[in-house]
């Protein structure tokens, strides 16, 4: 059943750019990676970061700088950007993980705002205009100028990120994360150095958030302040909750629907988009607590009368 779903999704992902505008699809994939990375933290470690835009946008700036100013190959720029995101994640993580709940969120938000101001003020980031005109170059010999080629590169990147995050969730490390999410004091009393596990989860999550931001930069050829703005941190929270916190596919579904909606509505509804997103958020929190995927899984299990089985395999 599970394998069938993944196979169908894989096929859809492979043929869809022939029917739908590839740039929109690429944007969806980037945000799907971002939300999956975020979900690793919120859904599987119980940590609500409100500063993930810093890694998403920060890595985009770093990679953009490596490509545009230092004229390094795309491969190097991607690796450099991901490493910078991981490093930022490590720094923010060290300062934040000893705080609980809302204080954790506040520390991540405050540090992300610092990254925002650096991006606004630093001489190399282009200030309010952002870093524009980052050339697409080539990747492993493939020219990225063509949207369709870029799509398949990014699709591959998405699959890779998804698989690594999936494995992380279903690893011995992932088991410990879930235990910490479920009952932190009990995990400590069983001898786990909880801060170390949280820190590693934070670094992995930040690295993939950065990866998502870099890919988005490659698609649009720019890195802007929007990517590091706290709105972006809020958007990823919304996508994850909407799709289903702590589910495997939830973040992918959530980001697909929200990006598509945004895309459709900006032309017709203009500024109303923000309001509509707000309404979706409220409805989710009040009625569909488990998100689309979470509720569907629950419904499916109820139909089978197997609700006793653990949800996460």
């Amino acid at each position: 059943m599970r394998i069938a779903i993944y196979l169908i999704l894989l096929i859809i992902g492979a043929v869809l750019p022939h029917f739908v505008y590839p740039v929109l699809l690429m944007k969806i994939l980037c945000f799907a990676i971002f939300a999956c990375a975020f979900n690793l933290l919120l859904g599987f470690s119980g940590l609500l970061s409100f500063g993930h835009a810093a890694f998403f946008g920060g890595a985009a700036y770093v990679s953009g700088y490596l490509i545009k100013n230092l004229e390094l190959p795309t491969e190097v720029a991607i690796i450099g950007g991901v490493l910078s995101a991981a490093l930022m994640g490590w720094l923010v993580g060290i300062l934040a993980i000893r705080r609980q709940g809302i204080y954790f969120a506040m520390v991540t938000l405050a540090l992300a705002q610092m990254v925002y101001f650096i991006c606004l003020e630093a001489p190399i980031t282009g200030g309010e205009d952002g870093m524009q005109g980052i050339p697409r170059g080539s990747f492993l010999g493939l020219s990225l100028k063509d949207d369709l080629t870029l799509y398949y590169v990014i699709f591959t990147g998405f699959i890779l990120a998804f698989l690594i995050i999936y494995r992380t969730i279903h690893s011995p490390f992932g088991q410990v994360l879930k235990a910490i999410r479920e009952n932190e004091s009990r995990a400590i009393s069983l001898g786990y150095d909880v801060p170390k596990y949280k820190l590693l989860a934070f670094v992995i999550s930040a690295a993939f958030a950065g990866f998502a931001g870099i890919l988005k930069m490659l698609v649009f050829n720019f890195a802007t302040l929007t990517d590091v703005h706290w709105h972006m941190s809020g958007d990823v929270v919304l996508m994850t909750i909407f799709g289903g916190i702590g589910t495997i596919l939830g973040p992918v579904v959530g980001s697909s629907i929200i990006i598509t909606l945004e895309d459709q509505l900006t032309d017709s509804a203009g500024d109303m988009v923000t309001v509509i997103m707000g309404v979706i958020f409220v409805v989710c929190v009040l009625i569909f607590r488990k998100g689309i995927v979470g509720e569907s899984v629950a419904l499916y299990q109820r139909m089978l009368g197997r609700k006793n089985l653990p949800q996460v395999k």
């Binding site: 494995r167 690893s171 011995p172 992932g174 069983l190 170390k196 596990y197 992995i204």
Partner: peptide
């Protein structure tokens, strides 16, 4: 599991 050495191995299968 807490006595295992593999607890940080996020690339290993559960």
């Amino acid at each position: 599991q807490s006595k295992q050495k593999t607890n940080f191995y996020f690339w290993r299968s559960e």
